[in-house]
C-alpha cells in the first residue's frame, strides 16, 4: 500500500512536472507569435504561473514579455513604468537562479533581457530616465556579450542600440546592419523548444529599416 502510494505520488509529481514543462512549451510557442500588448500581458501571467524546470526560464520569459511590451509602448511614456519594474524584478530573479560559474550562456540570455528592460525605462522619458538607464542598459549588455560573444539576441540588442542612438553619441546604422546580419547568421534555423531562440523576426525587421 505504502509502495503504491509512493509510486502514485511519484507518478503524479512527474505528471505535474510534465504538465508544467508542457505549459512552458506551449507558452513559448505562443510567445513566438505574440504581437500585441494584450497577448504579451496574457503570456506574462502564464509564464509567472509556470514552475517548470529549468527554473530560470519562467522568470526569463515573463521578463521578456514585459520588455517587449515596453518596446511596443515606447511612444507612451506614461504607461511603461509598471511593466519595466516588474520586468526588472523578473530578469534579476532569473539571473539569481543561474549558476554564475557554469551557466554562462544562460546568464548571457538573462542579461540581454535585463538590458532590454533598462532600455524600456529610457522610453518612459529619455530626458529624465535616459542617462541612468541608458548607461545601465549598455553595461548589462556588455556583460551579456562578455559571457557569450556570439549570442544572437545580445547581438540583436546591440544592433538595435546602434540603430536607435544618434550619430554623435555613437550611433551607427552600418554597424547596426552588420550586427543584425551577424545575429541572423548565428540564429541559423532557430529551434522551437523552450530554450531562448527568438531574434530572427526582430533582426529582419531591423534590417528592413536600414538601407
Amino acid at each position: 500500500m505504502k509502495k503504491l502510494l509512493i509510486t502514485l505520488s511519484v507518478a503524479l509529481l512527474s505528471y505535474s512536472g510534465f504538465a508544467q514543462s508542457n505549459a512552458l512549451q506551449q507558452a513559448v510557442s505562443k510567445l513566438d507569435q505574440a504581437q500585441t500588448v494584450t497577448d504579451l500581458e496574457q503570456l506574462e501571467k502564464t509564464f509567472t504561473g509556470i514552475s517548470a524546470q529549468p527554473a530560470w526560464l519562467s522568470s526569463y520569459y515573463a521578463a521578456l514579455c514585459n520588455a517587449k511590451i515596453g518596446f511596443l509602448l515606447q511612444d507612451d511614456g506614461e504607461k511603461i513604468e509598471p511593466y519595466s519594474n516588474r520586468g526588472e524584478e523578473q530578469a534579476k530573479r532569473a539571473i539569481a537562479t543561474l549558476d554564475s560559474a557554469k551557466q554562462h550562456k544562460e546568464l548571457a540570455e538573462a542579461y540581454t533581457v535585463l538590458s532590454m528592460i533598462y532600455r524600456t525605462k529610457v522610453f518612459i522619458n529619455p530626458m529624465t530616465y535616459g542617462r541612468k538607464y541608458g548607461m545601465l542598459s549598455d553595461q548589462v549588455l556588455k556583460q551579456a556579450r562578455a559571457l557569450d560573444a556570439q549570442n544572437p539576441r545580445a547581438l540583436y540588442v546591440a544592433a538595435w542600440v546602434k540603430y536607435a542612438t544618434p550619430k554623435m553619441w555613437g550611433g551607427d546604422k552600418q554597424q547596426a546592419k552588420q550586427l543584425a546580419t551577424q545575429s541572423l547568421q548565428q540564429l541559423g534555423t532557430p529551434g522551437t523548444d523552450v530554450y531562448p531562440h527568438w531574434g530572427k523576426a526582430e533582426d529582419q525587421a531591423l534590417l528592413s529599416k536600414i538601407k
Binding site: P126, M127, G130, R131, K132, A164, T165, P166, W169
Partner: peptide, 22 residues
Amino acid sequence: SASAQNKPAALKPAVPVADSAI
C-alpha cells in the same frame, strides 16, 4: 538634444542639472 535621443548618458556638463536620480 538630450531629449531627442535614447542615450544621453554623458551629455550634461558640469553645472549640476537634473541628474540626481542616479
